[in-house]
Amino acid sequence: MIVVQNVNKIYPPHRHVLRDLSLELNNGDRLILLGPNGAGKTTLIKCIIGLTAPDSGRIYVNGVDVVRNPNGARESIAVVFEEADNSYSYLNVFDNLLYFGLLNKRSRYEAKRRAEQIMAMLNLTPYADRLAQSLSRGMKQKLAFAIALMKGAPFLFLDEPTLGLDVESQHHIRALLTEKHNWWNAVLITTHDIPFAHAVGNQFVFIKDGTIIWRGTKEHFSTPADLETHFLAAIRSYQFSQEVGD
């Protein structure tokens, strides 16, 4: 379980990025964070994994206080940031996966077996001998996802995971995120891709100006269009309430 309690984050001089924000991520959740650019989604992820300290509030990852022990909490989370290149350009795809498996204290046999399994799931096997630096933007994004899976952490965080991916690659990742397996316990995803969000998510949080303006489950939306309509209505309602408040 991940618990975020009344978290605030202010960037100098007066940019209030997260405002008294609270949420939980439980086993089985595929939680989708939807919000416009600058809403605070990536900052929230950075706070949860201990890269950025909140100015107030508490965050717990499997009972570990992230503020007091960021490294301990980080061991439980694998994360892929938007357009992040976490691979080594001079290594091929397979060796990148093998390296990160060994880095996460797997035996060479287990790291090799897991790397082969992940490559097969993500259709990366034909690219096993390709240097990371020679891959397209979309393939690098897929490799970053594969490297995150090598960690074997109970929580998976994905920041705009479909960015730059072709339709087939999006399908592979969507299928992997929705299939029943034991690769992780829960996943948190930020995305602007409404059809992808609807297909993958079972929990939804709408965020604007660092504030949660709506939260609910997939039962509220029968189609991607329903999700988009509900999201836009929540944004307009929030903006109207802020204008009235001013």
Rank of each mutant, 00 (worst) to 15 (best):
residue 35 G to R: 04
residue 76 S to V: 00
residue 61 V to A: 03
residue 44 L to F: 00
residue 72 G to Y: 05
residue 71 N to A: 13
residue 67 V to L: 07
residue 66 V to A: 03
residue 59 I to R: 00
residue 42 T to A: 05
residue 52 T to L: 12
residue 72 G to W: 01
residue 56 S to A: 12
residue 69 N to G: 00
residue 73 A to E: 02
residue 62 N to K: 13
residue 34 L to S: 13
residue 49 I to M: 08
residue 42 T to G: 07
residue 76 S to G: 04
residue 44 L to A: 03
residue 67 V to W: 02
residue 60 Y to H: 09
residue 55 D to K: 01
residue 60 Y to A: 05
residue 40 G to T: 05
residue 75 E to H: 13
residue 27 N to E: 15
residue 28 G to P: 14
residue 63 G to D: 09
residue 24 E to R: 12
residue 35 G to T: 03
residue 78 A to Q: 14
residue 77 I to H: 06
residue 64 V to F: 03
residue 28 G to M: 10
residue 65 D to V: 07
residue 52 T to E: 14
residue 58 R to Y: 04
residue 76 S to E: 14
residue 71 N to S: 14
residue 34 L to F: 12
residue 79 V to W: 00
residue 54 P to M: 05
residue 61 V to W: 05
residue 56 S to H: 01
residue 78 A to E: 08
residue 75 E to Q: 15
residue 40 G to D: 07
residue 33 L to E: 11
residue 35 G to A: 11
residue 53 A to R: 15
residue 48 I to K: 03
residue 37 N to K: 10
residue 41 K to D: 07
residue 51 L to G: 04
residue 74 R to D: 02
residue 46 K to E: 11
residue 42 T to D: 03
residue 35 G to M: 06
residue 62 N to H: 10
residue 27 N to Q: 15
residue 61 V to T: 11
residue 34 L to G: 09
residue 62 N to I: 02
residue 33 L to V: 12
residue 36 P to F: 10
residue 36 P to G: 08
residue 69 N to Q: 06
residue 27 N to L: 08
residue 53 A to F: 10
residue 32 I to W: 09
residue 61 V to D: 01
residue 32 I to T: 10
residue 68 R to C: 04
residue 68 R to S: 14
residue 28 G to H: 13
residue 45 I to V: 09
residue 53 A to Y: 13
residue 78 A to C: 12
residue 43 T to C: 05
residue 59 I to L: 01
residue 60 Y to T: 04
residue 27 N to K: 15
residue 70 P to W: 01
residue 40 G to Q: 01
residue 35 G to Q: 09
